Simulated scan of single mutants.
Amino acid sequence: MKASKKKTKEFVKHSPAEALILFVNMGLTKKQYDILRESNPNIYPCYSIIKEAKKMCRREVFDHFVQNEIGHIELITKWGCDASQQSQFQQKFNDVTSDDSNIFQSSMVPLRLQVNTDNYTKIMWQNPTPSSVRFCRPIRIRFLHETVDVTKEEINYMENQVKNLRKTEVQTCNGVIQVKHTMIPTMVDGKVCNSSTNTSSTMKCYICGKTSKIFNDFQNKNVENPEALRFGLSILHARIRLFDTLLHIAYKLPLKKWQARTPEEKLIVKKTKQKIQREFKDRTRLIIDMPKAGFGNLNSGNTLDDFSVIMKQLQISQV
């Protein structure tokens, strides 16, 4: 009787490129990767090899430039600033006036590396996830509460830094190439835009300074503020705001009015809102339009993502 032999599973060692993809997609630090490699060094190459593979990726992009393109390379980056509240840490500051309950931060995200010549524009690299934190890098972090003055100061600081930017020199097989930097302040929310343009009311458009009542008055011509156009038209919260708008329309359907003024009308809107919230929870298990401790309400991007998945499942089940 022959003794049975168990077949041992063979693991193929990752190539440097495969290990680099794993390293980037999982967002690992050097220490985390080293711990992962210690579990099986026969599969994962050492970190120094990954580091060289990363350099080769950069060189590969720059080595594709031909001679007439070397002086026309541009890196487009978006930047912005925002604040958040957080729980205070137990560590003490050397400066007793400092407070870590509020953080105000400026960040940047590279969008596109391209060649601009007189005859054509060629994209060499484009950010596949421009709204993700994957390529987001902090510029300055300050322990400050977000106010109009702080926002203006930060925008002025950043714009002065952008004006003083010099071209980046990169050594390639074709020689030294220079990369021009173009930074646009489009990574902002409405609060930052209002502070920068001195728009005192959130009911006003920060571009033309008009309210919704005047938008439909075609006799009154809207004059745009050219300085406000540099912030672009952010779609960061477009889905959330659209969802909020549909909810508020549904709350006021029994009135057929946009605004409830009398106590009786306000009571009708309140009961309709409670009914819609209750049915949402019963049918989709989602809690909507409820205050959340610390910030805003539960109408977030995650809520909309869950709602989209539920609606797709319902559509599939009905087919």
Rank of each mutant, 00 (worst) to 15 (best):
I207C: 04
K163A: 04
K292H: 03
Q86K: 15
A19D: 08
Q313C: 14
K54A: 13
L304H: 06
K78V: 10
M187G: 00
F62V: 07
S48K: 11
L229T: 14
L236T: 10
E18A: 15
S101C: 12
T262G: 04
M56C: 06
I76C: 00
K54P: 00
E159R: 05
V61K: 08
S107L: 10
P138V: 05
Q91K: 06
R142D: 14
Q85D: 10
N119F: 14
L255V: 08
Q114N: 01
R37G: 04
K152H: 06
V162H: 02
Q277F: 02
R278K: 14
N42H: 06
E52W: 03
F23A: 02
R241L: 10
L286A: 04
L242C: 07
I214Y: 06
R58L: 09
F215I: 08
V148W: 09
S15E: 08
K152N: 15
L233M: 12
K256M: 14
L236P: 01
K55N: 04
L75I: 01
Y206D: 07
Q90M: 05
L253R: 08
E74C: 00
Q315Y: 14
G294R: 11
D100N: 15
H145F: 11
F280G: 05
L314P: 00
L253E: 04
K213G: 03
L75R: 01
L75S: 02
I141K: 10
N94I: 14
E264A: 10
E279Y: 10
E74S: 00
Q171R: 08
S201H: 06
S106I: 10
M124I: 12
P263H: 07
R37D: 03
Q178D: 09
I35K: 15
F23R: 05
D217H: 07
L236K: 13
G190K: 07
N94P: 05
L242K: 15
T262R: 05
I123L: 00
D34N: 13
A3E: 13
F65V: 15
Q86A: 12
K252S: 06
M203W: 03
V61P: 03
L236D: 14
A83M: 01
Y47N: 04
